[in-house]
Structure formats: C-alpha cells, structure tokens
Design a binder for these strands. Structure first.
Length: 827
RNA sequence: GCCGGGAUGGUGGAAUUGGUAGACACAAGGGACUUAAAAUCCCUCGGGGGCAACCCCGUGCCGGUUCGAGUCCGGCUCCCGGUACCA
C-alpha cells in the first residue's frame, strides 16, 4: 500500500505545531543541548544542510524518547559578503536580500519538520544581536585583548577592496582572479595568541572530539619550544636584535642574520645601512611581490646584505645582517639567526651568496666536512666549536644554551606559536560596526556600553561599491559623533567586524535570546551548557571552531559563561556528492534541493535514503536510483504496519505458548521467530543509534521487514506487537510515517513522547549457534549446535564431518576451540 | 614536503576484542502476474573449475606475525582533504 507523503507530512507538521512538541523545557531535569552549525545566509538550504540537520534531528528524537529534556535551537549567520555582493551587483538592499533568504530557508526547514524550537532563533544581523557582539568587543578591549595595529592585508587591485584570508585562493582574488597584493592598513585584532596555550592544552580535555580535528587545531596553533636570544648591532649595542630559535644549540654556528623586509627595524635602521639603496630597492620589490610569487614552490630564496654587522653574544663573532623575504615578519620576532650548517633554508641561502658555513654539530661518531656538505645537517649530534658546550649532546644543549643565555642576561628559554592574532576588521558595510570612536583630543574612546548598539546607517545612504575603505566612512551621519569623554566632535570607526565574531558566541545567546538587558543570563546558560553534541562540517576545524572556543573561554574568564569549553562532543558529517562523485554546484547543474526531494519522494524517504547510503561521518554519493530501496522499505513498513493495527491487541505470551518453540523442523516463520527477531532488531538498532551508525541501523530494520514479510504469523498478537515496536524504532528516521502508524495503533500522543523500547534479553539469546570448523585455518564445514554445548562434544562432532575427515589422517597437532564459534584442527 | 583520511563485487556499502568476507540496498539477468506497461512478488548475482557433493583464487601492492589477517606489524602505490619557507 502506498502512502501519500504530502498528506501525512502536512498532517503531522500541523499536529507537532499544535502540540508544541519542540518547545524547550524551562527547567530541564536531564538536559541535552543539541546543536547544528547555523546557516550562513546566502540562499536556500541545499542537500548538504539537509544531511546536517537530519542528523541533529535524529539525535533530538532519539534522546527525547530516552527521556531527555532538549534544547534544539536554530539561527542565521546573516552578516557577510553575499548580501553585499547582491547589493553591488543587483542593487538589492543587503537587509532585504538577507531577510528574503532567511524567510526562504526557514520555510524549507520548517517544511522538513526539523525539531527546532523556533522561539530561540537568533539572527546575527539584527541590532538586538549585534548589540551584544559589540558589547563583546568592548569587553575584549577592556581586557586589552582587542587592539589596533598596522598590518599588511590582502588587497585586490581590481575589486579595489580588502579581502579576508579565506577569500584569497592560492594568491588570487576569489572573484576576479587577479593577483592579490599586500597593503599596509590599520586594523583591529583580537589577541587570541594570549589563549594559545590554553586552546592547546584544553584539547586534551575534549575526549569526544574527533582526533583529526584536534590534530588540525594543534598544528594550527603550532607550539614550538626553544629560546629567545638577543643579538646586538656591532657599532651600537643599544640596538637589540632578538631572535627566536628552536635550535639554540646551534648558536655558535651563526654566520649571518636575516630580517624580514617589512620588519619595523628595517625602516628604523635604514639610514645607518651602508647598503641603504639596495636595501630600499629590495624591500620595495619584496612588498610588491604578490602572494602568488611568494607561495611558488621552489622559489629561490633571495635577499640583500645591509652592510650592518651584528655581534653574536655567545661567540663574539661579527656577522652580516641581511634582509631576506624568506623571513616572516609575523612569526617569532621577525628576525632569524642563520646557521647554514644546520638549517636547510639557511644552507641554500648561504650557498647562493657565498656566506661561510660553520659546523657546530657533528653526527654521533663522525665529523662533518664543510666542503663535502650538499645539504644542512639537521639531526641531533654532538656540539663542537661551541665554547663551553663542546662535547655536549645537542639535545641537552638546547636546554643548556637557553639557560646559559638567561644567566648571562642575553636570552631565555621561550615558546613561540604559529597562531596569529585574529584580524577582525573588515572594510565592509554588512557587519557589526566596531564600537569605537576616534577623538582628536582623547584618542580612541570606546562607545559606552549603554549606548549600544551602534546601528548601521540606513542603506539608502550607502554606496556599496568598494573603494578600499569601508562604505561606512562615506556616510557623514554615521561617522560624525561626539566624543563620549570630552563631548567634542569625533569620528566613529568605519570598519565592521568579521562574521566569525558573530558566530563565536551564538550558542550562548540561544539560551536567552530575547534578553535586552544583558548578553544572556548565566542562570539560563548554566541550565544548558555545554553543548552536548555539535554537528557541522570539518571545514571549520581551524576557523570557527577555534574562534568559538576562544570566545567561550574569554567569556568564562570574565564570569559570563558558565563553561570554559563550549562543546562536549563534536561530530563532523561528510559532504554530499552526486552519483558520479562530483561536488554539487550550480554551474554543474547537478544540485539537488531539499524542496525538490520533499516534492518528489517525500521527506521520510529522503531521510531514510540519506541515512542508509553511507555512515554519517563519511562522504555520501546521492543517487536517485538508490532511493528506491528506501522508498520500497517505507511502503512495506506502512502497509504491514497498517495491517497490524487491525489486529486486536492480545496476550503476546499466549501466542508464544502455542508456537513451536524449537520448531526448526518446519521452516515457517511463526510468532516465536517474529518475537525473537523484533527484539534482536531493537537491540541492534539501539546499539547502532548510540554509535551514530545510522546506515546499519536502517539495514537492520530492512532485514526485519524481509523476515516479517515472509512470516505466516502476520495475524498474531506478536505481529502487532512487533510492528508497534518497529514503528518506534523507525520514528527518528522517518518521523512522519512513524507518527501516522503510531496513531493508528491507538495512541493519542506523539510517538516521540513514548519511551524507546527495551529488548527482552532472553529473546535475543540464540539457542542454536553455528560453529565453523576449520582445518589449518581454512573453512571445511559448519555445525549447528545448541548454545553452550561442551567443547569435547563439539570437537567430536566436528571430526565426524565428511569434508573434515579427509584431512584428519592423523591426530591433529593442536585443536583450537572458541566456544560457540569455531573449531580449528592444526595438522 | 609535512599532517590527516581512504582503497572491499558492476555500484553504494556490511563485517564486536583477529574467528563463516560481501549483511542491507541499487543495478543487471531470468521467471510469475498483466492484453500491455508500471507496480508487486520469486530466483540468480565476486572470479574460475566441476553433472554434483565440493575444490582453487579473491578485501590497492609486497613482505611479516598468527592455528587463523579486510582487521595487527613493516615497506610501498594511488585517490581525497588540511597546511605551506613557522626559524
């Protein structure tokens, strides 16, 4: 019998709404915070979102049937470039465009019947939300964790705008493909590096996060241990050149120093450089160099000698100071001590410019000959030519040299991180304005908290076409204000914040989303945090998921958040591809929209198919052909289920009495077999659901239906019992059909208010087991025996198997026996 | 380069702690029903040999450990993702 999915869907959407099924309990007894990453508003949802949301929806329904009180909110990451793109290209209003998209997406998600409590919704572009994003900024500023600095930013000369790092794709602009340049601009940063150590250490306290994500975060944070050593200018000991190195043991091998072209010290010392002109020329060239050139794989390193000389505080050696663009200004101190003998990059550089190479580490039991080296020796060894450290093991030397430097006052052990401070300024309109005021007299003054939000000016006043500065700067009524300190004329900050700031705290706003007096009540947050399960794609491993941990940690430190870490368990779903394994994209025309699916095959079938196709953490190839299997299965469940509802509920036990309990003689599937099968199915589906192994859970239910369809006991009380239980097992997978059946079974409340079924432990025990019989590990036969048959008896019977006999010419050397599983004769 | 993840029939994928490889499903082939088609139902379905009972080979490649390896260990190949001079 076919069911009309449209009819059923409409009925239950309404019913759930009437029943307020997805409302959040005010005072949870057993709380569960289920969260999927919210939607970055750029259009309607696609099939990838569908997959994400139904996994979360499954968990909600499954946990609900286990008696949990859940919070399951949804919202929109609604600021950002797409809205502004639409404004530029099609002259649309960013706000109206965004709202139209939100409306469309909301409609789709609601039609899908995902278990969201919509009363908790947040939209990051609304003033009642971004007011608190601005408040967060002020708090960070107050704690010296927000600062303004000059920095080199990505600049697209064709679009005339600043680009975020993720908008630079291998050195080119993501939209127009022109080569991105670096420009020096004053920008706002969040000092996430202050939290680097904690962000790293806490990863060990997150056992339920996927290991690959933790590894990615560890690499991203990139902690290195070593030393900071201070070199000095030869003719002016007042000029210090601090360097960071992980190999202080090689300090006696320094034969030159190198500094990043954009380093401040280069400008400072420029007039004292004997080779001033070449340095200026080199620096200009380096700065103009596009990202793409700098990224080129085997680009030969280059640089110029400044003519200045630097004194090595350890050896007293005087070495040249070079400017070289292989030195990064943003890592360590922006200056390196170069040890060509023991660092490959320095080695290559030294070869090119005929700089001496000095060996200070010898391999154990050998001696390096500089003339014969064709690459640096980077492994540990024995220190040599190293003054007081001669003969020291280099790995011990690392520590000793750093400590020695500390004693002498020209260095100390140090730790460096790869993680950079978070650049949050965007020269864009569609974002939360940075709540700062620039006063000619008082300098930078924060907007008083009670004057928040700093509202975006009406868009009719704004020219969105990028000119390299924020569109806000051309709106006088936004820019002109009074200084909160002195009351005189002042200017607002024209930049807006990176959208990652908006999404770094939304999970906390959900718990108290309508609060106009504070960011959220801690008492509410305490009820729900941390998030028990957070589901999203792994593309956020080193972006959102780090910012989100950082901000939660910060809010915890200032006593606002009740938790230090936002998420207990993280789950990354795989991507959705088309049948050929290609990414779905509009240009390929292979996109499958959820609306399309609900129209054509129905939500339940689409869900079951998605769950069935692949484990949720793996990529999935969406195939319309394969959906058939899921549709057939559901139609079968519906037909058999509806038939079973017509059976009068009776005594299941009585049914079993009359059935042939050990009736393996007649192979028909009677009430007893059905009874055992449904309990086995309950057990397996429960186990699979716990492990999020949804594909096998569906297979288990299909298996049950195959058995049931061939049963001759479809009119028994057991049949009714079994189909009723199956309805519950199916509910988190196919909620609409499950509700329809559940009601037909005579229930007046939602199936999601019923308890997940338990299984009868006795029923799932097999009384007959198959023991496999092997000779030398090769399968030679099978035995059907009663469970717990003594070993001797099984072995004796195994020896009698015809196929086995042939091999057992003599007494076996050894007999392996695994109870109820296998016998292996070793001959 | 470095760091992750993966490779199992024609296809998507199953296989507790090492213990019957290929569950479940799709496609394909055959059959039933039908005037016909769709739908549904039944059978076959890794490769090779045999009338058959059975036998041989088979989880990317090579080797090892083990009574027994898709699973563990060592060495490769290819594909996908992250990262990119991090001193």
């Amino acid at each position: 019998m076919k069911y009309s999915h449209k009819e059923i869907e409409a009925r239950w959407l309404k019913r759930w709404d009437d029943w307020n099924l997805y409302d959040t309990q005010a005072n949870p007894k057993r709380k569960f915070y289920q969260l999927e990453m919210f939607l970055y508003t750029s259009g309607d949802i696609h099939i990838g979102h569908f997959r994400n949301y139904i996994i979360g929806d499954f968990v909600w329904r499954y946990k609900r049937m286990h008696g949990y009180d859940l919070i399951h909110p949804f919202g929109f990451d609604a600021f950002g470039l797409p809205a502004e793109e639409a404004a530029i290209k099609r002259k649309e209003s960013p706000r109206k465009w965004t709202e139209a998209n939100i409306q469309k997406a909301t409609e789709t998600i609601k039609k899908l019947g995902i278990s969201y409590d919509w009363s908790r919704e947040v939209r990051t572009c609304n003033p009642d939300y971004y007011r608190w994003t601005q408040w967060l900024f002020l708090k960070l500023y107050e704690k010296d964790l927000a600062y303004r600095d000059t920095g080199l930013v990505n600049w697209c000369p064709s679009c005339n705008t600043v680009l975020a790092n993720e908008q630079v794709i291998s050195g080119k602009c993501w939209r127009c493909d022109s080569e991105v340049e670096k420009r020096e601009l004053v920008q706002w940063y969040f000092k996430i590096t202050d939290y680097a150590q904690r962000l790293l250490d806490n990863l060990d306290k997150l056992p339920e996060w996927p290991e690959p994500i933790k590894i990615m975060q560890r690499n991203w944070i990139g902690r290195s241990e070593g030393a900071e050593l201070v070199f000095e200018l030869e003719d002016d000991a007042e000029v210090k050149l601090p360097i960071f190195t992980t190999r202080p043991d090689t300090v006696y091998g320094v034969t030159y120093m190198a500094i990043a072209p954009e380093h401040k010290l280069v400008s400072k010392l420029i007039d004292r450089m004997p080779n001033k002109d070449t340095v200026i020329a080199y620096r200009n060239k380096a700065l103009a160099k596009s990202e793409i050139e700098r990224l080129t794989e085997d680009r030969e390193k280059d640089g110029v000698d400044t003519g200045l000389r630097v004194r090595n505080p350890f050896s007293g050696d005087k070495v040249a100071l070079w400017v070289a663009d292989y030195v990064l200004a943003s890592y360590g101190t922006g200056i390196v001590m170069a040890v060509p003998a023991h660092d490959q990059r320095d080695f290559e550089f030294a070869q090119k410019y005929d700089i001496p190479v000095k060996v200070v580490i010898n391999p154990p039991g050998a001696e390096l000959d500089v003339r014969k080296m064709d690459e640096a020796y980077v492994d540990p060894g024995v220190m040599t030519e190293s003054g007081p450290f001669d003969g020291t093991d280099s790995e011990v030397g690392i520590k000793n040299v750093a400590e020695y430097a500390a004693q002498k006052g020209f260095g100390k052990p140090a730790v460096s991180f790869r993680l950079r401070d978070w650049l949050i300024s965007r020269q864009r309109y569609w974002g939360a304005p940075i709540p700062m005021i620039h006063c000619p007299r008082c300098g930078m003054v924060p907007v008083p908290a009670d004057e928040l939000p700093v509202l975006l000016p009406d868009e009719s006043r704004v020219d969105f076409v990028p000119k390299g500065r924020s569109p806000l700067s051309s709106v006088p009524e936004f820019m002109n204000t009074k200084c909160p300190k002195c009351g005189e004329d002042a200017q607002r900050d024209a930049d807006t914040m990176d959208t990652f700031v908006d999404s770094a705290w939304y999970h906390l706003r959900y718990v108290d989303n309508k609060n106009s007096g504070e960011i959220f009540r801690k008492s509410e947050a305490r009820k729900w945090l941390p998030i028990d399960l957070y589901i999203g794609g792994d593309e956020h491993a080193t972006g959102h998921l780090i910012y989100f941990r950082f901000i939660t940690m910060f809010l915890y430190d200032i006593g606002v958040s009740p938790v230090e870490e936002p998420v207990t368990k993280l789950f990354n779903h795989g991507m959705v591809f088309d049948e050929a394994g290609d990414v779905m994209s509009k240009s390929k025309g292979n996109v499958v929209s959820p609306r399309d699916l609900m129209e054509r095959i129905g939500i339940d079938a689409a869900r079951v198919a998605m769950f069935f196709f692949a484990p949720p953490d793996r990529e999935v190839l969406w195939s319309e052909e394969n959906v058939k299997g899921s549709t057939r299965f559901l139609e079968r469940v519906y037909a058999e289920g509806m038939a079973a509802t017509k059976i009068e509920a009776g005594d299941v036990g009585a049914d079993l009495q009359v059935s042939p309990v050990k009736g393996r003689a007649d192979l028909k599937i009677g009430p007893y077999e059905i009874y055992k099968a449904i309990h086995k199915t309950i057990k397996q589906v429960s186990l699979d659901a716990e492990q999020m192994s949804y594909n096998t859970a569906v297979a288990r239910m299909m298996e049950f239906m195959n058995l049931y369809a061939n049963s001759e006991a479809k009119n028994s009380s057991v049949a009714r019992f079994a189909m009723e239980r199956l309805t519950q097992l199916l509910a988190p997978f196919a909620p609409f059909i499950a509700e329809e059946l559940w009601e037909a079974f005579g229930h007046t409340e939602s199936v999601f208010r019923s308890s997940w079924p338990d299984y009868d432990a006795d029923a799932v025990v097999e009384d007959m087991v198959t023991v496999i019989v092997q000779v030398n590990g090769r399968l030679r036969g099978r035995l059907e025996v009663h469970k717990d048959t003594p070993g001797d008896e099984v072995i004796a019977r195994a020896k009698e198997i015809e196929a086995v006999k042939g091999y057992l010419v003599a007494e076996p050397k050894k007999t392996i026996y695994v109870p109820d599983k296998l016998v292996n004769f070793v001959i």
